[in-house]
């Protein structure tokens, strides 16, 4: 389960609309509560590192950007909880490409953007055996 305040839900939607028709991406920062639920406290937008001609259906957060995000998290007493990205004119379901490149433990939030307007938003977790994503419940807070 991941807690996502309405302000951050709106911020992710806005990022998706701003990047349209390309994919946006960024990092979810926050903490784990006593029950193990992820509590999102901040998003950190990251420039999509894929080449311009591929950004309509691909995103990449480089290792250096990941290290910077971890540094920001440590400095503010937070953890990297996961990542978000948009699917322009595609559902908020993870693709096979998403699965091949994902890691367990993290939350993967996907915002579908249709015709430039943010639509459904969903969160996913990769199973430990890498076989599939499972939907993660989002609790607005």
């Amino acid at each position: 389960m991941i807690r996502l305040p309405e302000t951050l839900d709106a911020a992710i939607r806005a990022e998706g609309e701003k990047a349209y028709p390309n994919e946006c991406c960024g990092v979810l920062l926050g903490r784990l509560d006593a029950d193990g639920a992820r509590v999102t406290e901040e998003i950190l937008p990251i420039d999509n590192a894929r080449e311009a001609g591929e950004q309509y259906h691909r995103f990449r957060i480089e290792a250096d950007d990941f290290l910077r995000a971890e540094h920001v998290a440590r400095e503010t007493g937070r953890d990297v909880l996961g990542f978000y990205h948009s699917h322009p004119d595609h559902p908020a379901d993870p693709s096979e490409y998403d699965r091949e490149h994902a890691l367990p433990f993290y939350s993967y939030i996907i915002i579908s953007v249709r015709g430039g307007k943010a639509a459904e938003l969903a969160s996913w977790e990769l199973t430990l055996d890498r076989a599939r994503f499972e939907a993660e419940r989002i609790v607005s807070s």
Binding site: R58, L67, S95, D98, L103
Partner: peptide, 9 residues
């Protein structure tokens, strides 16, 4: 250190 990647379809 992981790089994070993905994308639609």
């Amino acid at each position: 250190v992981p790089a994070i990647a993905g994308g639609a379809g």
